[in-house]
Deep mutational scan, measured.
Amino acid sequence: MDSLVVLVLCLSCLLLLSLWRQSSGRGKLPPGPTPLPVIGNILQIGIKDISKSLTNLSKVYGPVFTLYFGLKPIVVLHGYEAVKEALIDLGEEFSGRGIFPLAERANRGFGIVFSNGKKWKEIRRFSLMTLRNFGMGKRSIEDRVQEEARCLVEELRKTKASPCDPTFILGCAPCNVICSIIFHKRFDYKDQQFLNLMEKLNENIKILSSPWIQICNNFSPIIDYFPGTHNKLLKNVAFMKSYILEKVKEHQESMDMNNPQDFIDCFLMKMEKEKHNQPSEFTIESLENTAVDLFGAGTETTSTTLRYALLLLLKHPEVTAKVQEEIERVIGRNRSPCMQDRSHMPYTDAVVHEVQRYIDLLPTSLPHAVTCDIKFRNYLIPKGTTILISLTSVLHDNKEFPNPEMFDPHHFLDEGGNFKKSKYFMPFSAGKRICVGEALAGMELFLFLTSILQNFNLKSLVDPKNLDTTPVVNGFASVPPFYQLCFIPV
């Protein structure tokens, strides 16, 4: 009986604490739906499609509103004006990374994606500088992407125009580009180590996009005490870190300090320079996690976009025909596509942009946080508050993009057929937390897609009208449904 009384008292205290925290903070924060004790607004949000729920709530509470995930307040920004004001106009104040408990377990605050403060700034600055020195957006990395595009075309030829699921092959190409940047090595598509790495990356994007992960991140005790797919994700990350550590040891034994070959060499050189400046942010643990982040951000996002792009091109054969006509006119058949071609191919450029806009790969991006107490639109948001960005509300804005739910390359073309930029184009987020590999991803999408369409016609196994382009999961990332196609050599 005594234990029951204690339990009831504990629960009562928890409920009172929950109510007090919510009521004391709500006077400062933007308005929002009334949260339930302990669980907050979790029942009012469709976990399978958070973005749709945010759109519905914005119609009631406006472009800036507050939700509670458990006891934790989260300020939501919906629509271009609110997102721009926060991420661009007040970029420094909104540059923090929001709480992501599962990532905390995986990387302990290291790396480039989930770190904060001085650690994040130094690692991000170093990573950007190193990638630029190796030619991100310049010639040397373009050579690597072109080489991988040629290998991709050869792998597709091996399908002999038979029906195939493109998931694996389209994942190999961007993964190999990242391998060449980090390890100075590309792998054969049949290499077992490479296959294991690909498998872990593919599993992780599916797990991260599941409703279960949303629950884990908002009720963090689940991570330590409950079984579930989150444990598989943590094991996959541990596998990748151990693999990278092996490569780091190989580099330490063979590195030429006067001739760095890749990202690992550059990081080890930085560690050597910083060894007298303790404590340094440049450690082996930081290198492991930064490399894992580059793999995660640079492989599955690009391969998922490529997979979605081919599905949309199957669905819209008239678009595919126009792209192939432009390829034939500008590039021809006797040389590989290059980035200089893009400025002469406005329709193809528009298609690449429209694919990214339409699929809305990361509907709410990753959570941000404010780095200080900030007054925002007459609300006071306390330091450390998590900020949720609705990228969907920007990419699918119906004023900027008429009929935003329709796939239409003319969203990025003017009346004369010239490519038209849009400030609403934010597939990689915006501001200080914009994806480090934005330029690389854009290069890969253009070169891989043009190389495929230069060499193959795409054949659907069903009537294009019957192809479903609805994402199968739409949590962290929008993942396309399973499909097969035939690559018919031109």
Rank of each mutant, 00 (worst) to 15 (best):
L4M: 14
L7V: 13
L7E: 10
L7M: 13
V8K: 12
V8S: 13
L9Q: 14
C10V: 14
L11P: 08
L14T: 14
S23P: 11
S24Q: 13
R26C: 14
L29W: 08
L29I: 05
L29G: 02
P30E: 00
P30T: 02
P31E: 07
P31H: 08
T34M: 13
L36N: 05
L36M: 11
L36H: 08
P37C: 03
I39Q: 03
G40L: 03
N41H: 04
L43K: 08
I45R: 02
I47K: 13
K48G: 11
D49I: 03
D49S: 09
S51Y: 13
S53Q: 13
S53E: 11
L54Q: 03
L54V: 14
L54S: 05
K59L: 11
V60M: 11
Y61K: 02
G62S: 03
V64M: 09
F65N: 02
T66V: 03
L67P: 01
L67V: 15
Y68H: 08
F69I: 15
V76T: 04
L77Q: 00
E81T: 10
E81D: 13
V83T: 09
K84Q: 10
E85T: 08
A86T: 10
I88T: 14
I88G: 15
G91T: 15
E92C: 08
E93S: 10
E93H: 10
F94E: 03
S95P: 05
S95H: 10
S95N: 10
G96L: 09
G96R: 06
R97E: 00
P101H: 11
P101N: 13
P101V: 08
E104I: 10
R105I: 11
R105L: 13
N107F: 04
G109L: 03
N116L: 02
N116R: 14
G117F: 06
K118A: 14
K119T: 11
E122I: 07
I123T: 15
I123E: 09
R125A: 07
F126K: 03
F126R: 03
S127I: 08
S127W: 07
M129F: 11
T130V: 07
L131N: 05
L131S: 06
R132A: 05
N133R: 08
N133L: 08
F134T: 13
G135D: 09
M136S: 10
K138W: 11
K138R: 13
R139E: 10
R139F: 11
R139G: 10
R139V: 11
S140E: 10
E142C: 03
E142R: 01
E142I: 04
D143Y: 08
D143E: 15
R144K: 12
R144C: 11
R144G: 03
R144A: 12
E148I: 02
R150I: 08
V153H: 01
V153S: 01
V153Y: 00
L156Y: 00
K158P: 00
T159H: 05
T159R: 04
K160T: 02
K160V: 04
A161Y: 03
A161S: 13
S162H: 11
C164E: 02
D165T: 01
D165G: 01
T167P: 00
T167C: 05
L170Y: 00
C172V: 04
N176S: 02
N176L: 01
I182G: 00
H184V: 03
H184T: 13
K185D: 06
R186S: 02
K190T: 11
Q192C: 09
Q192L: 08
F194V: 03
N196Y: 07
N196A: 14
M198L: 11
E199C: 08
L201T: 08
N202L: 07
N204C: 06
N204D: 02
N204G: 04
K206R: 13
W212M: 09
W212L: 10
I213H: 15
I215V: 15
C216R: 15
C216E: 13
C216V: 14
N217M: 08
N218R: 15
P221H: 11
I223P: 13
I223V: 12
D224P: 11
D224S: 15
D224L: 07
F226N: 04
F226G: 05
P227Y: 10
H230V: 09
H230F: 11
H230L: 09
N231L: 08
K232G: 04
L233G: 04
K241T: 03
K241N: 04
Y243F: 14
Y243G: 03
V248N: 03
V248G: 03
K249P: 05
E250F: 05
Q252N: 07
D256S: 10
N259D: 11
N259R: 10
D265K: 04
C266W: 15
M269F: 10
M271F: 06
E274A: 09
N277R: 11
N277V: 11
S280Q: 12
I284R: 06
I284E: 07
I284P: 06
E285N: 07
S286M: 15
L287E: 00
N289F: 10
T290S: 10
A291G: 05
A291V: 15
A291I: 14
V292N: 05
V292H: 02
L294G: 01
F295E: 01
G296M: 06
G298Q: 00
T299G: 05
E300I: 15
E300W: 15
E300H: 15
E300V: 15
S303N: 04
S303K: 15
T304S: 06
T305D: 02
T305Y: 04
L306E: 00
R307G: 01
Y308R: 01
L314F: 01
K315P: 02
H316F: 13
T320D: 03
A321T: 13
V323N: 01
Q324H: 09
E328N: 15
E328I: 13
E328M: 15
E328Y: 15
R329H: 13
R329L: 13
G332V: 05
R333Y: 10
N334M: 12
S336M: 14
S336T: 13
P337D: 00
P337T: 07
M339Y: 10
Q340A: 15
D341L: 05
D341V: 04
R342T: 06
R342M: 09
D349V: 14
V351D: 01
V352H: 02
V355A: 06
Q356A: 09
R357C: 00
Y358I: 08
Y358G: 02
I359H: 07
L361V: 07
T364Y: 15
A369L: 14
C372Q: 15
F376K: 02
F376G: 03
N378L: 01
L380S: 11
K383S: 08
K383H: 05
K383Q: 07
T386I: 08
T386Y: 09
I389V: 12
L391R: 06
T392R: 13
T392Q: 15
S393H: 03
V394S: 08
V394H: 04
V394T: 11
D397I: 05
N398S: 13
N403G: 08
M406I: 13
F407Q: 00
P409H: 01
P409V: 07
P409A: 03
P409G: 01
D414Y: 04
E415F: 05
G416M: 13
G416T: 13
N418C: 09
S422V: 08
K423I: 07
P427I: 05
F428L: 07
S429F: 05
A430R: 11
G431M: 02
G431H: 04
K432G: 08
R433V: 00
R433P: 00
R433M: 00
I434D: 15
I434F: 15
I434A: 15
C435I: 00
E438M: 11
L440N: 00
A441V: 12
G442K: 14
M443Y: 07
L445E: 06
F448D: 00
T450P: 00
T450Y: 00
I452Q: 00
L453C: 10
L453H: 00
Q454H: 05
N455C: 09
N455G: 06
F456Y: 06
F456P: 01
L458V: 06
S460F: 00
D463M: 04
D463G: 05
P464F: 05
T469V: 13
G475H: 06
G475M: 07
F476Q: 15
F476K: 04
A477S: 10
A477K: 13
V479D: 08
F482E: 15
F482V: 14
F482K: 15
Q484Y: 04
L485C: 13
I488T: 11
P489L: 00
P489A: 03
P489F: 00
V490H: 13
